[in-house]
């Protein structure tokens, strides 16, 4: 990233000289007029983003709206806001174990997965960002293929594998299975951040007599703390949103909230209000953390390549 900044400033400088050269051939008036026109053009800049954001938020608003309605209000008429607001749906979720256990299960395996993914990805990302070694590029590619592989392909063999180990319906099974796509993701994101740390820091630390583990924990990790945060967030997110593998590997004891929600959907006599409330609660973790990672979202989804 240091490299990118450097490049940007260099371009900035050359760009300025170009425009200076051009500007000097024009009168000051003309430049001022052009600048004014530019300002006029951008007066309506906000329309497109606003319309887009409203369209994005409308379905989410509808979900939130429904979560505060009673079932009779939802079914009887289409109301744009809850006429008789109730928190009964949320109360149901927080008091019924079959609902809130789903959240606890999800959080347990997601946290386990995040910890495992980051722990194994940190040294690997360091190796990729600092060294060349036999087969490094092919290894990197192989990791990518795992991130790209459809979960549907792995659902069946995972079921067989974890059955053989007697791990079906445990949190660790889901946590390990989600490593399939989260470890490569963490490696790629962390590698991007680590490449931004100048190598001189490593060399100075080694000259100062730091051992590798001590250097890594005391000096290097604080330097890439934001990178670790971003990687954690994306591991958390991608494990949190995954349904297929989590549903396949669990039956009752470790059933995630996502699977509980789909079960409710297929049952007859839908409890729309509770379903909506459950949906709102699953959106919350992402919505709460999003502000802190706003500049890294594109990076995370593009595997750290932006």
């Amino acid at each position: 990233m240091g490299g990118a900044n450097e490049r940007a400033t260099r371009q900035d400088r050359s760009g300025t000289t170009v425009s200076d050269g051009l500007a000097s051939t024009m009168s000051q008036d003309e430049v001022a007029r052009l600048m004014r026109r530019r300002g006029e053009e951008s007066r309506w800049w906000w329309i497109v983003p606003t319309v887009y954001i409203v369209v994005l938020l409308l379905p989410i608003y509808w979900l939130i709206n429904m979560s505060f309605k009673t079932n009779s209000e939802i079914v009887s008429s289409l109301t744009l806001y809850p006429h008789a607001p109730t928190i009964g749906n949320y109360v149901t979720i927080f008091t019924d174990p079959s609902w809130y256990k789903g959240y606890i299960n999800s959080i347990i395996y997601v946290v386990m997965n995040t910890v495992i993914s980051i722990a194994v990805a940190l040294p690997a990302a360091y190796a990729f960002s600092r060294y060349r070694f036999l087969g490094d590029k092919h290894l990197f590619f192989w990791l990518l293929t795992n991130r790209m592989a459809p979960p549907a392909v792995f659902a069946l063999p995972f079921f067989q594998l974890y059955s053989a180990f007697g791990l079906i319906d445990t949190h660790i099974a889901v946590a390990l299975a989600h490593c399939l796509f989260n470890v490569p993701l963490a490696v790629w994101i962390l590698e991007g951040f680590m490449s931004g740390v100048p190598k001189e820091i490593d060399e100075t630390a080694y000259i100062d007599g730091y051992s590798f583990p001590r250097f890594f924990l005391r000096i290097f990790m604080p330097l890439i703390a934001s990178g670790i945060g971003v990687a954690c967030f994306f591991c958390f997110m991608f494990s949190w949103v995954e349904l297929l593998i989590a549903r396949t590997l669990t039956t009752t004891a470790a059933k995630p909230i996502a699977a509980i929600m789909t079960r409710t959907v297929s049952a007859s006599g839908l409890d729309w209000g509770v379903l909506a409330a459950a949906g709102v609660l699953t959106i919350l973790p992402g919505a709460l953390v999003i502000w802190f990672v706003r500049n890294y979202i594109a990076k995370g989804f593009a595997l750290g390549r932006v």
């Binding site: 954001i53 938020l57 979900l63 949190w240 949103v241 996502a258 959106i283 999003i290 979202i297």
Partner: peptide, 20 residues
């Protein structure tokens, strides 16, 4: 605000549109 839909669990995206 634009990134919000990206972070919604996929099955909830399904639920939202199923209802919507």
């Amino acid at each position: 605000l634009m990134a919000l839909p990206l972070l919604i669990p996929w099955n909830v995206v399904g639920t939202i549109w199923q209802v919507f």
